[in-house]
Simulated scan of single mutants.
Amino acid sequence: MSTRSRRPRLALAIGAGLAVTATLTLTGTGVADARPAPADSTTVTPAGHAFTAKVNGKATFKAGSVTLTCAVSASQPSASGTNNQIPQAPDNANPAGPVASDINPPTYSSCTTNLPGVTATVTTTGTWGVSMQNGSPASATLTVPTAGFVLQTSGLASCTVTSAPTGPSSVTGTWTNGSPSKITFVNAAVPVKVTGGFGCPTGAVTSAFNAVYDVTDVTDPASQITVSG
């Protein structure tokens, strides 16, 4: 038999052996099941209530060598519309997943940078989103729309940092029930595009986001926004 005729059969034999081995590994031991575990049921209350998320302390963004620190940040409901509102019942409950709400873009002000002689302003646009998921711990995922956050520096370094530059992007933090309830983001990675000249971190592709937001009930200040099963 020629070498040319043996090689395909040998390859088939090896492939079949690997397939059998993989099948035994995944199913024979009963351990390596790749299917994700079902999400916990989630209920967010009070149903239909409006809420505000306001930074507790400072919000920071670090892209390459540039760190932005903002002392003021908040997302607040408008006089009309359903942004920043817990869904009405029964949509405030999900038997196997998160409960989501659209929110107004959070504002950022009183911002400084770690670079001498460089000032910064932040512009936010579009409809943002937040979804709460019950669990241990509970979590909250913030969705930034395409180019929904733009940082512009001026002075000794003129840079533009655009978050979610090619499409919506989400970052997940920890939700803690309380008075008020809190969302905590620790080094949450946000995709960015940086443009500019000298001193701009044009090689950075992500920004690390750190912040704690207090979430308070606007409809009834005596109530608390709560995530449960």
Rank of each mutant, 00 (worst) to 15 (best):
M1P: 11
S5V: 15
R6M: 14
R7W: 15
P8I: 08
I14D: 03
I14V: 14
I14R: 05
A16C: 10
G17K: 01
G17V: 10
G17A: 09
A19F: 15
A19C: 14
V20C: 09
T21H: 08
T21Q: 07
T25N: 10
L26P: 10
V31S: 09
D33H: 10
A34P: 14
A37W: 03
D40Y: 08
T43N: 13
G48V: 03
A50F: 11
A50E: 13
V55A: 11
N56E: 15
K62N: 13
K62W: 12
A63R: 00
V66H: 00
V66P: 05
L68F: 15
C70G: 09
V72F: 03
S73G: 04
S75V: 03
S78A: 14
S78T: 05
G81I: 12
T82F: 07
N83E: 04
N83W: 00
N83Y: 05
N84F: 07
N84R: 00
Q85G: 02
Q85F: 03
P87A: 04
Q88C: 05
P90H: 06
P90Y: 03
A93Y: 08
A96I: 02
G97I: 03
G97K: 08
P98G: 04
I103L: 04
N104A: 05
P106I: 03
T107K: 09
S109R: 07
S109Y: 07
C111L: 12
T113A: 09
G117R: 04
V118W: 02
T119S: 13
T123E: 03
V130G: 02
S131F: 02
M132H: 13
Q133K: 11
G135H: 07
A138L: 09
S139C: 03
S139T: 15
T146S: 14
A147K: 15
A147I: 08
F149W: 14
S154I: 02
A157S: 15
C159H: 14
T160N: 13
V161M: 13
T162V: 14
S163A: 15
A164Q: 08
T166D: 14
T166Q: 12
S170A: 14
T172I: 01
P180R: 07
S181T: 01
I183W: 03
F185D: 01
F185H: 06
N187S: 13
P191G: 00
V192T: 11
V194K: 06
V194M: 09
G196N: 02
F198R: 03
G199Y: 01
G199M: 07
G203D: 08
S207P: 11
F209E: 11
F209Y: 15
F209L: 15
A211T: 08
V212I: 13
Y213I: 05
V215D: 06
D217E: 00
V218D: 10
T219V: 08
T219Q: 01
D220G: 01
P221T: 06
A222S: 15
T226M: 08
S228L: 03
G229D: 14
